[in-house]
């Protein structure tokens, strides 16, 4: 997956701002003929989990997903990826991520440690749901 440096910066800023809770949102962009996807914008989502549960879980309601899809289409873009933060935990998909993951979309996970955004990784669910496949992330200027 290719993403602009602005996308990376916005995901990290959102993760740091939401700390100690999980941030979540969408990456919008284009599918390329080569099969690559290129993320160009972020769209923040509301973590609908309540209270302290937001430290360890995120949820984006179906209604918000539909609204995001419409917002993307109105700009000539598609939803390419879902991002979320892992406060004080590694940028690796958890069992909970696997249980609830969708195929097709890339999953970007950013580690936020003591309020500072750290590394970010990119994953794709295997079609048989056996696990996540790590994806190369190319950052464009």
């Amino acid at each position: 997956m290719e993403v602009t440096s602005l996308v990376i910066r916005e995901i990290k800023e959102h993760g740091a701002r939401a700390y100690p809770f999980e941030a979540c949102g969408f990456v919008l962009g284009h599918f390329k003929n080569s099969g690559l996807v290129r993320g160009e914008k972020t769209l923040e989502a509301i973590n609908s989990r309540q209270g302290e549960k937001r430290r360890r879980r995120f949820n984006i309601e179906a209604e918000e997903f539909l609204a995001a899809e419409r917002a993307a289409q109105s700009q000539g873009l598609d939803i390419l990826a879902i991002y979320h933060s892992h406060p004080d935990h590694p940028a690796l998909p958890s069992a909970n991520d696997l249980e609830k993951a969708l195929p097709f979309y890339r999953y970007l996970i950013v580690k936020v440690e003591n309020g500072q955004a750290k590394e970010l990784s990119c994953w794709l669910l295997a079609n048989d749901r056996s696990g996540f496949l790590k994806q190369e992330l190319t950052i464009l200027p």
Partner: peptide, 11 residues
Amino acid sequence: LVPAIAGGNFG
């Protein structure tokens, strides 16, 4: 058919 999106941290 509309997906909700969910996941989260370890633990």
